[in-house]
């Protein structure tokens, strides 16, 4: 089994996640897309661990998970706060910070 396949899969998932961030307007789905990108990165880390024969890649993936958890907590809290004031979860609604 060629490890390149794992990397290609990671690339596909990352691209789909990025696409989702750009085209979706629901803030929660945007967040999910970000999580998908992080997962793709984790997959690449795990693959790297296998190709190099060390566990460092897995540790990196572990740290990414920790950071992702923290990010999700704060991000969702922000979404809830915005929803409270603007009664909408669309990120296009929050566009006052502009020219």
């Amino acid at each position: 089994m060629n490890p390149n396949n794992y990397l290609i899969l990671a690339g596909i998932l990352f691209t789909i996640g990025a696409f989702g961030v750009v085209v979706r307007r629901n803030a929660i789905i945007v967040f999910m897309s970000v999580e998908m990108m992080l997962n793709a990165a984790n997959l690449a880390f795990a693959t790297a661990a296998r190709t190099t024969g060390t566990l460092d890649g897995q540790v990196a993936a572990f740290f990414v998970m920790v950071v992702a958890a923290a990010e999700v907590v704060v991000g969702l809290a922000i979404i809830v706060t915005i929803f409270r004031t603007r009664r909408s979860a669309s990120i296009d609604e929050a566009n006052l910070l502009k020219y």
Partner: peptide, 25 residues
């Protein structure tokens, strides 16, 4: 990929905790 710890964490943290948090929100 010979990463059972990551696999477990993925299920427990992501699908278990993070996604459930998403659903709560």
């Amino acid at each position: 990929l010979q990463a059972p710890f990551l696999a477990t964490t993925q299920i427990v943290v992501y699908t278990g905790a993070v996604m459930m948090l998403f659903l709560f929100v």
